[in-house]
């Protein structure tokens, strides 16, 4: 039995240790949002967060995540409680066929958590491991930038509020 944390819950599986995490999550735990695209860590459709870092899971043996914390697309938001990134995706009309988008969103979310104010070059670099055959790249770029700008604004607002509070104190 291999035990790990999946979207905040401790889970166990008897899948053989060499089974890639992707298939364990999809078939054993029935979370279908993460997709199979290439089976060779070349396209990024299977991207999840492992301890917060974006990782391609179609070649990652489940034994490698024993004791670790995994987040999937289902763990960052639902249709009723979308994350800022998911909401930006829907608003910018990013998805066409949609198949790669869970992986794209997981990669983008990890990018902004490491680098809240990325340049276009930073975004291209971080997202170059995720293929979109429908060619939604211009909108992916826009969506990521819109979230970065908004969180910068929010941060500035928080900063100014706390500064103002300081003055009154």
């Amino acid at each position: 039995m291999i035990e790990f944390t999946l979207n905040g819950q401790v889970v166990q599986t008897d899948d053989t240790p060499d089974t890639p995490l992707l298939w364990v999550v999809r078939d054993t735990f029935k979370l279908k949002g993460s997709k199979f695209g290439c089976g060779a860590a070349l396209c990024g459709a299977c991207t999840m967060h492992i301890e917060g870092a974006a990782v391609k899971t179609c070649v990652l043996p489940v034994s490698a995540v024993a004791g670790k914390s995994i987040t999937t697309i289902e763990g960052i938001g639902t249709p009723d409680t979308m994350s800022a990134m998911q909401a930006a995706w829907a608003e910018q009309g990013v998805p066409q066929c949609g198949y790669c988008q869970s992986g794209q969103i997981m990669a983008a979310t990890a990018l902004l958590s490491n680098n809240p104010n990325p340049s276009d070059g930073d975004i291209e670099q971080a997202m170059s491991g995720n293929i979109c055959r429908c060619g939604c790249y211009p909108r992916i770029m826009q969506a990521i930038k819109s979230v970065a700008v908004q969180s910068q604004k929010d941060a500035a607002e928080v900063a100014s509020i706390s500064k103002a509070t300081e003055v009154f104190l």
Partner: peptide
């Protein structure tokens, strides 16, 4: 927008 945008942004499609 698209009628399938939310599903396809949340892994539920």
């Amino acid at each position: 927008g698209r009628v399938d945008a939310v599903e396809k942004s949340t892994g539920t499609a």
